[in-house]
Design a protein around this nucleic acid. Structure first.
Lengths: 206, 206
DNA sequence: GGTCAGGTTGACCCTATAGTCAAGTTTACC
DNA sequence: GGTAAACTTGACTATAGGGTCAACCTGACC
C-alpha cells in the first residue's frame, strides 16, 4: 500500500507525506513538487474546487498519484494553503497589530484583506470554509474571526468606528466582495480601490 | 411531434406553448400549470439552476414533459421569470420613478432592490445573467442597467450623490450582496437592513 | 545486474445532471 | 366506441467529476 497523507500535520508544515516519517523516493519527490506547483497555480486561477484531473494533467502525473500523496482535495489544500493565502493572511494581521492608531489599524487590515482577495480569488474559500475538514483552513478562519472581533471592539472603544457596526457586518462584506470577485467580471484596480474607500468611509461614526 | 416552446414569446406573455397558437389538451394544460408552479417554487428555494428532474418530480410528471412544453431550462425560466422577479423589479423601478426627491429616489430604489434580493435569491441570476439566452432576462437586465445609470446621473446633477460613485459601483455592490445572500448564511432582517443603511450612508457626498 | 518495496497508472466504478426518442397512453371528436 | 392526433414516459445516451485498485514500472540497495 502506498503512503497516504493523513490529517496529522502540525500547523505550518503543510507538506505531503511528512507525517509518515518515511522519506520519498526521488521520482516521487519530484512528482510531489510538481503536483504542489500545479495545485498552487490552479487554485489561484480557478479556486479551490479545480478538478483534480486538471491539476494532475498540469503536473504531468495521473489523478491517482495525487490521491497517493495527498489523499484527495482536502490534503492537497492543506499542503498548499500556506503558500496560497495563509502566509499573507497572517502577515496582514501582524501588520495591522503593529499599527498604533485604532482607526488606521482597522483601515489597514480591511484594505490588506481586500487587496489579498483581489489578487487571490481562492481567499474566498477560506472565508466561506468551503472545505471545513481542512484543519489549517479552520485555524485560519478562526484567527481571522478573532482579529475582526478584536479590531471592532477596539474601534468602538476608541470611538473611531460607528457603534452599530459589528464584526459580523465586516464578515458579510468580505464574503460578498470575495464572491463578487470570483463570480462577476473583475473590476479594474481603480474601481476596486474606490469601492474600498467607499466602504471605509461608511464605517466612521455618524 | 409534440409542440415545442420556442423563444418567440412577446415580452410579458411568459407562457408555454402560447406562440404555437394551438390550444392544449386538457391533460397537457394541467401538466403545464403544475410544472410552472413547481418551477416557481423550486427556483425560489434553490435558484435558477435547480435540476429539472426535481422540478418534474414535484410537478408529478417526467422530465421529458418539461422538455416537451418548455424546451428546456431556458424556456422554463422565460415562462416563470415574470412571476419570479420581473414583476417586482419593474414595480421597484416604477415606484422609484414616482419619487420626487433625487436622493429619496435613489434610496428607495436601492432599498427595494435589496429587499427583493433578500426575499428572492433567484434575483441574483438576473443580475449575473446566468442564462443569457433568455430574452426576458436580458430585457430585464437592460432595464435595470438603464435605471441605475439614470438614477446615478440624476443624483450627481442634484448633488445628493457623491461624485465618484458610478452605476458600475452600484451594480458591483448588488452582485456582491446577491451572491452573499445565496452562498453564505442568511442574515437576520435586522442585520440586513442595518447593512443597507451603511451602504446608503456611504453614498452621500463627502 | 537482480530484487523488491515504493511508486504509478489505465481502466475502472459511482454519482449527478442534461438531453433525446421510440413506444405506449390518453383525450377529443366523429 | 373507434380512431387519430396529442401527449407522456421509461429507458436511453452523453458529459463531468470524485474516488479506487490490480497490475505494472522503477529506483535504491545489495
Amino acid at each position: 500500500m502506498s503512503p497516504r497523507a493523513r490529517a496529522t500535520n502540525s500547523p505550518g508544515s503543510g507538506n505531503a507525506d511528512r507525517a509518515t516519517g518515511t522519506s520519498l523516493r526521488a521520482d516521487a519527490a519530484r512528482n510531489v513538487a510538481q503536483i504542489r506547483a500545479a495545485a498552487l497555480s490552479a487554485f489561484r486561477g480557478r479556486g479551490l474546487s479545480t478538478p483534480l484531473e486538471e491539476i494532475a494533467a498540469a503536473a504531468g502525473v495521473s489523478k491517482a498519484t495525487i490521491y497517493n500523496h495527498f489523499g484527495g482535495r482536502q490534503g492537497l489544500i492543506d499542503a498548499v494553503i500556506e503558500d496560497l493565502v495563509a502566509t499573507e493572511m497572517y502577515a496582514a494581521m501582524d501588520k495591522a497589530r503593529r499599527v498604533e492608531d485604532p482607526w488606521e489599524r482597522i483601515a489597514t487590515y480591511i484594505t490588506d484583506r481586500r487587496e489579498l482577495q483581489y489578487r487571490e480569488p481562492a481567499a474566498i474559500d477560506v472565508l466561506l470554509m468551503t472545505y471545513p475538514d481542512s484543519e489549517q483552513l479552520v485555524a485560519l478562519a478562526k484567527a481571522a474571526t478573532d482579529m475582526s472581533n478584536s479590531l471592532v471592539q477596539q474601534g468602538h472603544n476608541a470611538g473611531v468606528l460607528r457603534q452599530d457596526f459589528t464584526a459580523a457586518d465586516l464578515y458579510y462584506t468580505d464574503v460578498a466582495n470575495g464572491l463578487a470577485l470570483r463570480e462577476g467580471p473583475k473590476p479594474s484596480r481603480e474601481d476596486y480601490d474606490r469601492r474600498t474607500r467607499f466602504f471605509l468611509d461608511s464605517l466612521r461614526p455618524r
